[in-house]
Amino acid sequence: MLDQAGKDGLFTVVDTVQGDGLTPDQRQGMAITRQSFRFMLDPGELEALALAVEFGIPYILSDDRAARRTIEEHSDVRVLRHPDLLYICQYNAEAYCKDIKRIFRDIQAGESHRLGGSFQDIMRRSRERVKELGLRK
Score class of each variant (00 low, 15 high):
K7F: 05
K7Q: 11
K7C: 01
D8N: 09
F11M: 05
V14S: 00
D15I: 04
V17H: 10
Q18F: 01
G19A: 06
T23S: 15
P24C: 03
Q28K: 14
Q28D: 14
G29P: 04
R34N: 11
R34I: 06
S36N: 10
S36H: 13
R38K: 04
R38M: 02
R38D: 03
L41Q: 13
G44H: 08
L46C: 12
E47A: 14
L49D: 12
L51S: 11
E54G: 10
F55N: 04
G56Y: 03
G56S: 07
R69N: 02
I71T: 09
I71K: 07
I71A: 05
H74D: 03
D76I: 00
D76N: 07
R78T: 01
L80W: 01
H82C: 11
P83Y: 12
P83K: 08
Q90H: 11
Y91M: 12
D99Y: 09
K101P: 01
R102T: 14
I103K: 10
F104T: 06
D106G: 05
I107T: 03
Q108H: 01
Q108A: 04
A109M: 02
G110M: 02
E111L: 05
H113N: 14
L115F: 06
G117W: 06
F119V: 11
R125A: 08
E128S: 11
R129D: 09
L133C: 10
L135N: 15
R136W: 14
